[in-house]
């Protein structure tokens, strides 16, 4: 008698077990959905960092002329010892479009898009460097 009841109890338990895939409960699914929602919310908060403004740093003879937003199209005129150089910022790139020096190496470099890139015009003592958030470059590696 005793044996038969325990046996039936076991089989009942087993049958109940079989109906649920690996003991997953309704609350597990609720937790999954809640955490997925929270992860989705961080997507909005983390997004602005992605398009964090890169800045163009311009200096003449070691003095900082100024910082300029790389996403704003504009032209900056910088007066150096030889004359006026023109730095143009457009479409997220910076380029020296006019230089008073004889070689025009800085002009031939073309536009620079990324952080850490820089253009130097030695005769006119002009340095143009892009600072700020990088894209596609590694800051550090930890393993």
């Amino acid at each position: 008698m005793n044996v038969s009841t325990s046996a039936s109890g076991v089989s009942l338990k087993k049958a109940k077990h079989r109906t649920r895939f690996l003991r997953v409960t309704r609350w597990d699914i609720a937790v999954l959905c809640a955490l997925a929602t929270l992860a989705g919310l961080t997507l909005f908060y983390a997004h602005p960092f992605k398009s964090k403004a890169k800045r163009v740093w311009i200096s003449e003879g070691g003095k900082t002329i100024g910082y300029y937003n790389l996403n704003e199209n504009r032209e900056i005129r910088v007066k150096g010892p030889l004359g006026i150089s023109v730095v143009r910022i457009y479409n997220g790139r910076a380029a020296i479009v006019k230089a008073p020096c004889p070689n025009k190496i800085c002009m031939k470099m073309g536009p620079i898009p990324d952080r850490g890139r820089l253009m130097i015009c030695i005769p006119n003592r002009l340095v143009v460097e892009i600072k700020g958030a990088s894209k596609g470059k590694t800051d550090a590696v930890t393993r």
Partner: peptide, 20 residues
């Protein structure tokens, strides 16, 4: 905190979804 740059937080959604 280790890298000392907020841009690391861009990875947050990716890692959170991965954790699921």
């Amino acid at each position: 905190f280790i890298i000392q740059h907020l841009s690391v937080l861009v990875l947050l959604p990716f890692f959170l979804f991965l954790s699921l």
